[in-house]
């Protein structure tokens, strides 16, 4: 399967908290294609950052495996490991924390490349190139992070991430810490990089509007699981999981007319403690569709149509409703097909 760039198979990551076990990731199956950007949305504690960090190899999975370009990443050593490091990179949420305050931007880039075995001369030539690619200039190289603005710092972090010509990038909330006007600049930069370099990307965000602008496919996470996975048109037009529906309805629109005429679904309660998830479907205490079965049986991720999967006992009804012209469409998209439910491979 050469179309898959990176694949998570039954990925789990557990943390021990005293006597309890926090299942930050609890069985995630996911594949991202070459030059594809997959959006990953979810609230704090959903495990989306853990998934991103596990995919780039910053943390080992507790169970399951990560396959990159057809090979198992576990136990890779020597040249293979170096290749894996070169090809998978991470852009962090907070650019201030992601750059060493005592190193100039140039030194940070140089160190990053030298560690990966680049020759001094090659590094010298490379640094101005990647700074330019990230929208900075060679004049930024001798600057310390505190001398740059937030947006410039995030550009420097992006420059470091693309300096080794990776083919897979995890962007973990790359614009959440930035101001509105800077945010647009960084979104445009990431989009142009993804377009020009054919980068595969996992774009993690809690902001669905940003995801809509960055990603062709979107996965929704809730308490360590993927609860819905669909092309963005289908997800936004005909969401199947009630959590996705609520999430979409909670996003404020910068438009007073639409914002005030919307029919809001306001979720009850708070996201539960990930170390103590409810039995059955993890979403059921907050779900307006919850029925008896939801409190007992944990629904698996099922396929409704070739591209749209959801983990909900009632997703079939939802799919039927939307096929019949159901909820308001935000944007014309691929209609979700009814039935055809099959287990995830």
């Amino acid at each position: 399967m050469s179309t898959k760039l990176i694949e998570a198979i039954g990925l789990a990551r557990h943390y021990r908290l005293g006597t309890r076990v926090l299942r930050a990731l609890d069985g995630v199956d996911l594949a991202i294609g070459r030059a594809e950007t997959l959006g990953l949305v979810g609230e704090s504690g959903s495990g989306k950052s853990t998934l991103g960090r596990t995919l780039v190899g910053l943390q080992p999975p507790s169970r399951g495996s990560v396959r990159f370009d057809g090979m198992d990443t576990k136990g890779a050593t020597g040249a293979v490991l170096r290749q894996l490091r070169r090809r998978r990179q991470l852009v962090f949420q907070d650019p201030s924390g992601a750059l060493n305050p005592r190193m100039t931007i140039g030194a940070t880039l140089t160190e990053h490349l030298r560690v990966q075995g680049w020759e001094r001369a090659a590094v010298r030539a490379r640094v101005p190139q990647v700074l330019a690619a990230a929208g900075l200039s060679a004049a930024h190289a001798p600057r310390y992070p505190h001398e740059l603005s937030g947006g410039q710092r995030q550009r420097a972090v992006i420059a470091r991430a693309i300096s080794t010509d990776p083919d897979f990038l995890v962007a973990d909330e790359p614009v959440s810490a930035l101001d509105v006007s800077t945010r647009a600049q960084i979104i445009n930069l990431l989009r142009s990089l993804q377009r020009d370099r054919g980068l595969g990307m996992l774009f993690i965000s809690h902001d669905l509007s940003v995801v809509a602008h960055m990603c062709s496919r979107v996965a929704v996470m809730y308490l360590g699981r993927i609860v819905e996975l669909a092309p963005r048109e289908a997800l936004f037009a005909a969401p199947l999981h009630p959590y996705t529906v609520a999430l979409l309805s909670a996003v404020p629109l910068p438009d007073p007319v639409r914002e005030r005429s919307r029919n809001r679904i306001i979720l009850r309660g708070e996201p539960p403690d990930p170390a103590d998830p409810p039995p059955g479907c993890r979403f059921h205490p907050r779900c307006r569709l919850a029925s008896a079965i939801c409190t007992r049986v944990d629904p698996p991720l099922r396929w409704f149509g070739p591209h749209h999967a959801a983990a909900c006992h009632h997703a079939g009804e939802q799919a039927a409703a939307s096929a019949a012209g159901g909820p308001v469409r935000i944007n014309a998209g691929r209609p979700a097909e009814e039935g055809g439910a099959g287990q995830m491979r």
Partner: peptide, 17 residues
């Protein structure tokens, strides 16, 4: 726990470095 340490680990820098 700073992210720039994570970045260095990701690049494969040995602990002493």
């Amino acid at each position: 726990s700073a992210d720039f340490i994570a970045a260095a680990e990701l690049a494969g820098a040995p602990a002493w470095r």
